[in-house]
């Protein structure tokens, strides 16, 4: 049985329920008091689909404006993106369009996108119609699901379909960036091109003392 490892990034405006969806899927629970994510949280989830073991590495990003500039760190080299909006807020849906164009601009490798309208338990206050969302999803080639983290509706299905798409991607496109665990040693190879930051070598002990005096002044 093949095992593939895929990086999934969860994007969307703040308070649409990104963390709730992820915790519902990974941890199987719902908490009313989920506090805003700081930076990004990392989850892993393993599932078996169509004779593949799929290991999902999920980056649950923070929706707050101030973390916006961090996003590239997470979606770069992502194999799938969960684009979550709150169906009771049209604004959060329009924000998705910004995310999509940003992904299109910055991500080279093929990426599975899944549009998710969360909070469908509140569909009485719906501001985004199924039709509108569906059409948009088709126009960008994304999957589409409506979910509720509270009532546990649609989340399992959404991730499952993403996993199936990932397998398809792995089978059809060798350049997908997806790697199997057996080839794990090559993982570092996938990291080339990083603008890695280097700390100063030996000769730079001066700044430390400078700083020392600055703080102790």
């Amino acid at each position: 049985m093949n095992t593939i490892e895929a990086k999934v990034v969860v994007l969307g405006t703040q308070a649409v329920g990104k963390t709730s969806v992820v915790i519902r899927y990974v941890g199987g629970m719902f908490s009313k008091a989920v506090s805003p994510t700081i930076g990004a949280s990392f989850f892993t989830y393993k599932l078996t689909v169509n004779n593949y073991r799929v290991k999902l590495q999920v980056w649950d990003t923070a929706g707050q404006e101030r973390f916006r500039s961090m996003a590239p760190m997470y979606y770069r080299k992502a194999n799938a993106a969960m684009l979550i909006y709150d169906m009771t807020s049209a604004d959060t849906f329009y924000d998705i369009k910004e995310w999509v164009s940003e992904l299109k601009r910055n991500v080279d490798n093929p990426i599975v996108m899944c549009l998710i309208g969360n909070k469908c338990d509140l569909s009485d206050n719906r501001e985004v119609s199924v039709k509108e969302a569906q059409e948009y999803a088709e126009s960008i080639g994304a999957l589409f699901h409506e979910t509720s983290a509270l009532k546990n509706i649609g989340i399992e299905e959404a991730f499952l379909e993403v996993a199936q798409q990932l397998i398809k991607l792995y089978e059809t496109s060798p350049n997908s960036g997806l790697h199997t665990i057996d080839m794990g040693e090559n993982r570092s190879g996938a990291k080339e091109g990083n603008s890695s930051i280097k700390l100063p070598e030996e000769e730079s002990s001066k700044p430390a003392t400078q700083q020392d005096t600055k703080c102790a002044c």
């Binding site: 008091a33 506090s35 700081i38 949280s41 990392f42």
Partner: peptide, 19 residues
């Protein structure tokens, strides 16, 4: 002040002004 670190490993930027 952050509850969210309790849910999972986190990766976040922080500026230390004196550093």
């Amino acid at each position: 002040a952050s509850e969210s670190f309790k849910a999972a490993e986190s990766w976040t930027p922080i500026c230390l002004p004196k550093f």
